[in-house]
Computed example of a mutant assay.
Amino acid sequence: MKTAHDLVVAAKARIREVSPDEAEAAIAKADVLLDVREAEEFAAGHLPGALHVSRGLLEFKLGGTPALADRGLKVVLYCKSSGRAALAAVAMQEMGYTDVVSIAGGYDAWLAAGKPVVRPEAPAFD
Score class of each variant (00 low, 15 high):
residue 83 G to Q: 10
residue 113 A to C: 03
residue 70 D to A: 14
residue 74 K to C: 04
residue 81 S to R: 14
residue 30 A to C: 00
residue 19 S to M: 02
residue 53 V to F: 06
residue 68 L to R: 12
residue 46 H to P: 09
residue 60 F to V: 14
residue 32 V to S: 00
residue 81 S to G: 12
residue 90 V to R: 00
residue 12 K to Y: 01
residue 40 E to P: 01
residue 18 V to T: 04
residue 33 L to S: 07
residue 64 G to Y: 06
residue 41 E to S: 00
residue 95 M to P: 08
residue 101 V to M: 11
residue 24 E to K: 02
residue 121 E to C: 02
residue 10 A to E: 14
residue 109 A to F: 12
residue 100 V to K: 11
residue 98 T to G: 09
residue 88 A to I: 05
residue 7 L to Y: 14
residue 117 V to W: 07
residue 2 K to H: 12
residue 69 A to E: 10
residue 68 L to P: 04
residue 85 A to I: 00
residue 29 K to T: 09
residue 54 S to T: 15
residue 69 A to L: 15
residue 84 R to C: 02
residue 122 A to F: 15
residue 52 H to W: 12
residue 59 E to M: 02
residue 82 S to R: 07
residue 48 P to I: 01
residue 2 K to M: 08
residue 108 D to F: 11
residue 93 Q to A: 13
residue 11 A to N: 01
residue 92 M to A: 13
residue 47 L to S: 05
residue 41 E to V: 05
residue 25 A to W: 00
residue 33 L to T: 02
residue 2 K to S: 15
residue 100 V to I: 10
residue 105 G to Q: 07
residue 38 E to Q: 06
residue 39 A to F: 09
residue 46 H to F: 14
residue 65 T to V: 10
residue 69 A to N: 13
residue 57 L to D: 11
residue 52 H to I: 03
residue 124 A to I: 09
residue 90 V to G: 07
residue 105 G to A: 13
residue 93 Q to R: 08
residue 109 A to G: 05
residue 15 I to H: 00
residue 67 A to T: 12
residue 3 T to Y: 07
residue 85 A to C: 13
residue 30 A to Y: 01
residue 101 V to A: 12
residue 89 A to L: 05
residue 101 V to W: 05
residue 66 P to H: 13
residue 102 S to R: 03
residue 18 V to K: 07
residue 94 E to G: 12
residue 111 L to C: 15
residue 25 A to N: 10
residue 94 E to Q: 15
residue 76 V to H: 07
residue 51 L to D: 05
residue 5 H to F: 14
residue 107 Y to P: 02
residue 40 E to C: 06
residue 64 G to A: 09
residue 45 G to V: 06
residue 5 H to E: 01
residue 17 E to D: 06
residue 48 P to C: 10
residue 123 P to H: 06
residue 16 R to K: 11
residue 120 P to V: 07
residue 64 G to F: 08
residue 89 A to C: 03
residue 53 V to S: 02
residue 78 Y to T: 09
residue 9 V to I: 14
residue 15 I to G: 00
residue 37 R to S: 04
residue 85 A to R: 09
residue 72 G to D: 14
residue 37 R to N: 01
residue 40 E to L: 03
residue 58 L to C: 00
residue 37 R to V: 02
residue 77 L to T: 01
residue 19 S to T: 09
residue 57 L to H: 11
residue 27 I to D: 01
residue 55 R to A: 12
residue 105 G to S: 01
residue 119 R to G: 02
residue 120 P to E: 03
residue 8 V to K: 07
residue 111 L to P: 12
residue 104 A to S: 13
residue 26 A to L: 11
residue 90 V to M: 12
residue 87 L to N: 06
residue 91 A to S: 08
residue 115 K to E: 05
residue 50 A to K: 02
residue 37 R to K: 03
residue 69 A to Y: 14
residue 12 K to I: 02
residue 90 V to P: 13
residue 26 A to T: 07
residue 95 M to H: 14
residue 53 V to A: 12
residue 93 Q to W: 05
residue 1 M to V: 11
